[in-house]
């Protein structure tokens, strides 16, 4: 897997809980994410998928193993790996446009370029009309779009998303998933998305990394073969495709197995 842009190599993470107690959240996970692909980290809650993503972002340090981006070991957060969290992270004191410009400003990009790129990405996520609004005036889905535009405008090589649509209602979530396909096609950004939503994983992913629980281990690496290497930007179309329900069933079975292990 040397052609992978992002590599997780034999990574383990043990958290110290104090009083000498420890919790092994992730154990010996290895996988790669190819350039311009969408990879979903799927698994039941408590499988350490968010921890894996946070290590990719450089927000946690692996206890063992390495995360590599373009062959270089990740040592901390950086502009090359943008993160979108589940919780709203808009900077409420800044307008939507200033939010989107934040990363570029921090990286000393000149005002004209900032403005141009901000407008471009606000347009991409359909928020041009709200550029001068405050985030608190926006709905939950719109706030997540601001977060996505802000991350993309910063020009990351990889977009890391931690259950980004988990707090949204169902219709908004579908729209956002379709938007992500559109964004991936238009920007050629590599995307890693953590989810526990089977549909979301099948719809978005070129590759699904399924993690087991306690500790999180790589259970299976799944390629949705029925998509034949193409992305389907339409939720209604994909659920009618041959092979969709088989894959959903399979993932459901994997989820169930893990769920049983826990109880």
């Amino acid at each position: 897997m040397s052609d992978a842009q992002l590599e997780v190599r034999d990574v383990s993470k043990t958290f110290s809980l104090g009083r000498g107690k420890t919790l092994k959240a992730v154990e010996g996970v290895t996988f790669g994410v190819e350039q311009n692909s969408i990879c979903a980290l799927l698994g039941p809650s408590g499988c350490g998928k968010s921890t894996v993503l946070r290590m990719m972002a450089g927000l946690e340090t692996p206890t063992e193993g390495h995360v590599l981006i373009g062959g270089e070991t990740v040592t901390g957060p950086g502009q090359d790996r943008g993160v979108v969290f589940q919780a709203y992270t808009s900077f409420d004191w800044l307008s939507v446009r200033k939010n989107v410009e934040f990363g570029m400003k921090a990286n000393n990009i000149d005002a004209a370029t900032r403005r141009e790129r901000a407008d471009h990405f606000l347009n991409l996520v359909g928020l041009s009309k709200f550029a001068d609004a405050y985030p608190s005036q926006l709905s939950g889905g719109m706030r997540q779009r601001v977060a996505i535009a802000r991350t993309l405008a910063n020009g990351p090589e990889v977009l890391l998303m931690d259950e980004p649509f988990g707090a949204l209602d169902a219709e908004t979530r579908w729209l956002m998933q379709e938007l992500m396909i559109d964004v991936a096609e238009k920007t050629n950004t590599t995307i890693v998305v953590v989810t526990h939503d089977l549909e979301e994983a099948i719809f978005l992913a070129d590759k699904i990394i399924f993690l087991s629980t306690h500790p999180g281990r790589l259970k299976e690496e799944i390629t949705p073969e029925f998509k034949a290497g193409k992305r389907i930007g339409d939720k209604e179309r994909i659920i009618r495709m041959d092979g969709y329900s088989e894959l959903e069933e399979k993932l459901m079975r994997l989820m169930r197995e893990e769920g049983h292990r826990e109880t």
């Binding site: 972002a57 927000l59 957060p77 502009q79 993160v83 969290f85 992270t89 934040f102 990286n107 910063n154």
Partner: peptide, 10 residues
């Protein structure tokens, strides 16, 4: 999350 967002934005 606000702090982490800023850090990951560089």
């Amino acid at each position: 999350e606000l702090i982490e967002t800023a850090l990951t934005l560089g």
